[in-house]
Design a binder for these strands. Structure first.
Lengths: 259, 259
DNA sequence: ACGAGTTTGGGTACGCCGTACGCAAAGTTA
DNA sequence: TAACTTTGCGTACGGCGTACCCAAACTCGT
């Protein structure tokens, strides 16, 4: 539990990697590998195979190099994950709607845009879900994204801490809801079992122990929710439901603070 | 990605374990180990050492048995985690406030109680956070808890799917907010670095790259939020802020549906 | 041109992990 | 006591992160 000086050194080095602060002396053998290449390959592996198949060896294989070569450029696996997070945060852009050209009071539209952009980011890179909770890497990608998100709630009558809390609430919801959508919609990432097969197995078992009588509400609602997700309704609809509830909650607070 | 029959067999076996459906033939050597003992030891290990130190060997060591003995009683690591989840869900009790003896219309108080009970559960067992998103094990603990939570929102004017969505919204918030509290409050579970040490290292680095000018909002709000968490204010306050926003959002919806 | 110095690539190895397999110990039943 | 069933668990395999170390590739001073 003690803080090893090694940890601190890695933290500093990762920070320098994130901000491109390390200058090359010009001496020595030319690097055939860059941090950017490693990061790209790592993201490709995680996107394609999932986090549980993500390993230093897999990343190295994809680059056609030896496993230990990666450690010349990146402190370790955990730090590489931080760099990956910063990179995918950098790829989300709040170009128009969240900026000043929308009416300044229309923060709700801006937050909706932010919510959808974050959901899209997670759907592009589902492994992000397995990384939370995590201390966010303080790189340019994360900070730019955070700054843009703060601009969306700036000047609507919240204190600094409330702005942070409101954003955390919104983005937390997006993570959770997106996780729900991904969990139910597609083949399960970890077990390799599709949702249908899962219900086909578990449903009869539940009947067998007569839990319908002991858990009437759970069975009724569970079935309804399951049907709902299975495609009769749009999973989009469920995401929107919670999103509007969150925004309503923030809106109610903004109004009482302003009055 | 194909569904191995092995997975299905494990699913069935785990279900039988959860519901105590396996009867003993009476023959053969007496079992010196029970699933309950294994589950208890496993929870103790995860509580004490964290999920990253949780391993089959560690659990076996705590029980004073060989590692492979566990596999006589439990299909594998993943299934043991499912059983642990069901167990800790069973230990949360919604005794009084969330039941019918409160006024039937006071669903908001009931949901607050549920939120706090779930937060307490996560704080007792922080490793739960690393398990989401996860298909919930359909055991007695999980189902009892779900049933009780549904009773809190039954009959207030929501459809079945909306009841499920509202609960998912609330519990998702609780997970996220509790993760935030734990992340900032105590020594970090994974890196072994305390939050103070982290800021001591990262703060000067941020200054060095002059990001205060490029990310004015992020720096201002980040500092404010950090001070807030560090103890000037109660972390309880932040949890409550988001909780009330979520409940406001649900309340606004309930009202419009009823009118 | 050439050795010295510096940096990179990566092979080997160690200690973890989950767990398949198979055998010995311990119990019941005939 | 013999046959059978169930449990405990030692051994072993393949995979992981990564410490260590040396050779290859490059620049520079001479």
């Amino acid at each position: 539990m003690a803080a090893a000086p090694q940890d601190r050194a890695n933290l500093v080095r990762t920070f320098e990697l994130l901000w491109n602060l390390r200058e090359h002396s010009g001496l020595g053998r030319k690097a055939g590998l860059t941090v950017d290449q490693i990061t790209s390959a790592a993201i490709e592996v995680a996107d394609a195979e999932g986090l549980e198949s993500f390993s230093m060896r897999a990343v190295a294989d994809r680059l056609g190099v030896g496993a230990m070569s990666l450690y010349r450029h990146v402190p370790g696996r955990e730090e590489l994950l931080d760099i990956m997070v910063d990179r995918v945060c950098a790829e989300v852009r709040y170009d128009n709607e969240s900026q000043g050209d929308a009416s300044p009071g229309d923060w709700r539209t801006r937050l909706e845009h932010i919510a959808r952009a974050n959901r899209a980011m997670i759907e592009r890179h589902p492994w992000l879900l397995r990384l939370f909770p995590r201390r966010p890497p303080q790189g340019p990608g994360v900070l730019t994204k955070y700054e843009a998100e703060l601009r969306a709630v700036e000047g609507i009558g919240l204190t600094d801490v409330e702005m942070d809390s409101a954003l955390a609430l919104l983005l937390g919801y997006v993570r959770d809801a997106t996780a729900g959508v991904l969990e139910w919609k597609t083949v399960s990432e970890r077990t390799g079992q599709s949702d249908d097969e899962w219900w086909m197995t578990i449903g009869p078992l539940l009947d067998r122990v007569l839990v319908r009588k002991r858990y009437p509400l759970a069975m009724r609602v569970g079935t309804a929710a399951s049907e709902h997700y299975k495609g009769v309704h749009d999973p989009e609809h469920t995401f929107e439901f919670g999103l509007q509830r969150v925004l309503d909650g923030i809106e109610a607070f903004v109004r009482t603070e302003r009055k």
